[in-house]
């Protein structure tokens, strides 16, 4: 029964992949190898599509793999399988937190967690920045070739706009939309 197998495989991925959507990739690779549902080359395509479409990457991956294997029901079941463990675990933790909200222990732990969490978000941002703004692939790296200048200029411009008063009121999606158009018009990827 392919549907049950799909739910089971994605439930397992959702249960054991800790962290962001990228954490699901090794599990998906194993899944492809053990079930024969897709090859590593298929997976590469799926990752590329998941990265270039809206929505959390891990969810996109599950939907894509599910559709590839068993059509629309497959897409729905794989996605539900992936998110079910999270929903259960988080509902339990949220219930626990609501009950111990006043506890000094929990309060003190969260005071330590928050700066750490902020730092991890900053570090993730720097990783994205490295991939998007720097070009380390060339034969020799000079200051002129180190940066992807159009992307760097665009990022700097968006950052400045987000910090000035009337423009900062604009919805982030406006900046995303304008950036997509600029990227397409000025051929940012050189494609």
């Amino acid at each position: 029964m392919i549907y049950l197998r799909l739910i089971y495989e994605f439930f397992k991925t959702g249960l054991f992949a800790v962290g962001g959507g990228l954490a699901t990739i090794p599990f998906l690779r194993d899944m492809g190898a053990s079930t024969g549902w897709f090859t590593d080359a298929d997976l590469t395509t799926m990752i590329a599509v998941s990265e270039s479409t809206p929505g959390p990457m891990g969810v996109n991956m599950a939907t894509y793999v599910g559709f590839h294997i068993a059509g629309i029901p497959g897409a729905v079941l794989a996605t539900l399988g992936l998110i079910t463990p999270s929903i259960i675990v988080i509902l339990i933790i949220a219930g626990f937190l609501a009950r111990f909200r006043q506890s000094r222990l929990v309060d003190a732990a969260f005071k330590g967690l928050r700066p750490a969490s902020t730092a991890l978000i900053a570090a993730a941002g720097l990783s994205v920045a490295k991939n998007v703004l720097l070009d380390l692939g060339g034969a020799e790296t000079t200051l002129a070739t180190l940066f992807r200048w159009p992307a760097l200029l665009l990022a700097a411009a968006v950052f400045v706009c987000m910090r000035i008063k009337p423009l900062s009121k604009l919805h982030p999606i406006v900046f995303i939309g304008v950036s997509a158009v600029l990227g397409a018009v000025f051929r940012f990827a050189g494609a």
């Binding site: 270039s52 992307a151 990022a155 995303i176 950036s179 158009v181 990227g183 051929r187 050189g190």
Partner: peptide, 9 residues
Amino acid sequence: NALTGVNAC
């Protein structure tokens, strides 16, 4: 191309 712009943003 569009996605590269989005990523910079």
